[in-house]
Every structure is written in C-alpha cells, then in structure tokens.
Write a protein that binds this DNA or RNA. Structure first.
Lengths: 257, 257
DNA sequence: CAAATAGTGTCTGTTAGACACTATCAC
DNA sequence: GTGATAGTGTCTAACAGACACTATTTG
C-alpha cells in the first residue's frame, strides 16, 4: 500500500512527507513559506478526569517531552482528512468524533522553522482505549502510552497544571480544549461522544461533571436531560450492579425538541 | 517606509510578499507546500442587520466577485498580528476587537494552488465606518466599498442567503461567523464591541436582537444586563431625542459578578 | 398639552435546587 | 433483611415574560 520510493512513477500519495527533513520552505522565487501541520488531542473521560493521549518525543526538538500526535497536511487532503489520517496513523483509531479547535502559529513555537498548526480534538469512550496502538505505524518509534495501561504518560486537564513536560505549545492547546469542551457541553451533544452507545443517566452526569469540574444536582440534571429530547430509553437496564439497575439510554440524534 | 526594491540589502520586512506571483510552493527537496493566508471579516451592526466589509476583486480568480480582505501570513508575525496588519492595510482600521474564527483549507478552495486560510472577524461600532479607507494601501486597487455609502457592496448576514456573488469559500466563512456570534453573545462581552463607548440599554438590546435575529423581551433584557454587573452607568443621559432621555452606560470590564 | 420612549412595580408561569420518599437489584 | 443506588413527588427560590403604570423629555 505504501511506496518507499519517492521517485516511483505511479501517483504515490501523501505518506512520504512524514520522513522529510524539517527545513524552512522556499518557493521558486526564494520566498519562504511556513509549514502546515495538524495536532490532534485524543480525549476521554477516565476515573473522573479528562485525559488526552500524549506521545513521548524521541527526537529533538523537545526530545523526551510529551506531545500530541501530529503531522503535515498533505497537498491533496482537507484539514479534517489530515486530522483523521494522523489520528489513525499515530493512534490507530478510526471513526471518532473530530472537531477543529484552534490554529496556533506563533513564529517561535517550533525552533526549527515557522510551523502553523491547526489543532483538533477527538472524543472517545474510555472503553475504546484498548484500540489505541492497533495498526499505528509509528507507535513503537514514538512509544505511545496511555493512562489505563501505564498510569504515567497522561495529562489530567483541569484547574491544575500539567504534571508532564509538554512539547511546543501543546499545554496551551490543552488549555483551549478544556475551555471549548466546557463551553459547548450545555448546547452541543459532545457528552455522548465520551460514552458507549447505551449509557445510564448517572454515567452521563459523571461525564458532565468531569468536563465542568464541578458536581451537578442529580434531580435537575435528570429532568433537564429527559426534557431535552436528546436521549431516549433503549428499553434495556444495567445488570449485576449490586443495587437497583438503572435504565439505559441512547443519544437520540436529531431531536432538538 | 516601504521599499520597492526587493533586492535591497537592508532587512526589508514583510510587505513585498503581497505582490508576488501566486504559484505552488516547493521546498529544497521538491516537496510542495500550501500557502497560508488570513481572511478578515470586518463586521458591524447597521440598520438592524449584521454587515461585513467586502471588496470587489479586480483580478482572477473570481474576478468581479466580492471577498473578504485577506493576505499572506508573514514569516515573522503571529497569526493575530497578520490579521491586524491585513485589516489596517486593506481597510485602514486599527485597534479593533479581533478574534480567530476558523481555519479553512479544502484542497480546491483556491483554483491556483493549495491555500490554507485562517479566518478572523473584527467587530466595530458602526460610527467608525467612516475610518474605513483611510490609509489603506490597496484601497483604490481593490475598490473597497461599504454599505452606508453605497448601499451595494455588502452582505446582510442572517437567515437569508447572500445577495452578492462571493469569492472562494467566503460565504461559508460568513455563515460560521454568524453562528459564532450568536453562540458567544450570551456569555461573552461581544455586544459592546459593536457600540460606542457609552450607549443606552435600548441600543444594546438592538445589537443583541440584530445578532440573534429575533426580538427580545425588554424588561427581561434590562434586568439581566443590570444584574450581570457587566455594565455601569456613566452618569450621563441621552440628549435631544424627542422623548424621555435614557441613561448612558459603559462596559464595566472585569465585572463578572 | 400630545407624542414618544424610559423606567418601575407586580403578577404569573417555568425551571433549578432541595429533600423526603418509594423502588429494585445483589448479597 | 441490609446496603446501595434508581427513580418519583413535592415544596421553594430564582428568574423570564407580560403588562399596567409612572416619569421625563421635545415640540
């Protein structure tokens, strides 16, 4: 599927750009141009805190620091496609919720050359974390690690500062991410993206509390969700939980009633 | 201040990039790179509708269509700085509220080459419109025009479609802009940016109604604004209005009470 | 005075928070 | 039964909408 020969006469597409030297770019008239990348924060809610996938950098700059997965934007792909590709190549995840966050382009954010990075965030159910790493091309090289498995290479996003040294301006990206999630939670269906298809009201409330960083009133949350029309009962219930089982709900796409 | 000689040995900075040929960019190894631009929507509320500054394009592509002001991002400036510079050079306005909106980068959005554009929006009081054009370097060339003066070269942003043919994906940018303004209005102080420093509650309500595209309850709006702590009375009042004059207020920065 | 809009006081319906109470599972 | 959480009913406080009424200007 992938050609290692850049001079191959067949129309070999994007992947080769990952291995190129990272130098300032010039056009035919000698005018320099910035490089354009996407950085993707893969986010989940785990044990009551928001967590994002970080990979340990094995080469300078910021060697041994932790960073988001990222890569160059190909000439033939949209920004959304680039973000999805990077997420699949470097984390092994497909078909996840993906949204553009913000574009960072301070002149000094990468010490090698001018790099403009469009940041994205992806939301996944914590149960899909086991997929991370499957088929990821550069996993071994970048030594991906995830909280559930190692307890280490994670940053908990909240009022506290990150406990890990982060590369580039990735701490700023994660800060903007938390604000975006908090701001959108009340009017956009992003909470459901962090849960499996069917879930209990309690689990949904936990997600909301994790994002907001505060406890919510149970009765009010319940009434509000049921009245919103955004969820519908699946008919099923929890099983083997040691107490009265809760009804299961699913996200009712389209109902804005 | 500006050098017309690109081979000048003094460290002549950014402005020359505007006149270059617009061709695909390649680095030393022959790998192509996208161009990076900023597009800025200068927005005001005028006669009950949102309006954005558009300039008529005098060269292909999209010759004779209307577009936002835009320009290349210089290698030494941040994205915010690039947006402010473009706004000053092409609309003659300085010191206005400016915020990044979204980044557009579909492969075909510019027929010449791959262009990734970080869009911004600027908010100004309608009374500052008279400044538009002052000192704008390329104004004559691009034939800037504004609603208040011509009635023509404007797009009214609302539920209706634009009556003007718009260049590139600028219609999409304006659509995203309206959604952003509506979404932020209730929790961010953006309404004040569309008004002079002192204003009446009625004028503020008009701005909110213009952005939301719906009428608001007068009593409730009044109570909400006064209780928010975001505004404070200046002590002054309207004059010569043919009816009871309203108190003047100003935006009380920082009060989130 | 009339015309017009600013601003106040009060009632009502809706919604959020609080809390008591009942329901249903595992053990 | 006990322990634990799900789910319901009801009271209350806060707030938005509605509307009547008063206040203050220009002409």
């Amino acid at each position: 599927m992938k050609s290692n020969d850049q001079n191959d006469s067949s129309p070999a597409p994007a992947p080769s750009h990952e291995e190129r030297d990272f130098l300032a770019q010039y056009d035919a008239s000698g005018f320099p141009h910035p490089s354009v990348t996407v950085d993707v924060a893969l986010v989940t809610a785990h044990e009551g805190v928001l967590k994002a996938l970080l990979v340990k950098r094995v080469e300078p700059p910021h060697k041994d620091a932790w960073g988001l997965v990222g890569g160059f934007v190909g000439m033939e792909e949209s920004l959304d496609e680039a973000a999805a590709r990077v997420l699949e190549e470097k984390a092994g995840l497909k078909d996840v919720f993906l949204e553009q966050l913000y574009t960072f382009g301070a002149p000094g954010r990468d010490p090698r050359t001018r790099v403009i990075s469009i940041s994205y965030f992806a939301l996944v159910d914590a149960k899909r974390l086991s997929e991370v790493g499957n088929g990821a091309r550069t996993l071994a090289q970048l030594s991906v690690a995830w909280p559930a498995e190692t307890g280490g290479p994670v940053v908990a996003l909240g009022q506290d500062e990150s406990p890990l040294p982060l590369a580039f301006d990735h701490a700023e990206i994660l800060g903007a991410l938390v604000l975006r999630l908090r701001g959108k939670l009340d009017y956009a269906p992003i909470g459901f993206e962090l849960l499996p298809e069917s879930f209990t009201l309690r689990a949904l409330q936990d997600i909301h509390q994790t994002i907001k960083g505060e406890t919510l009133n149970k009765d009010s949350f319940r009434r509000r969700m049921l009245a919103s029309g955004m969820i519908e009962a699946t008919g099923g219930r929890e099983e083997s939980v040691g107490h009265r089982p809760a009804k299961l709900y699913r996200f009712a796409r389209g109902n804005t009633n």
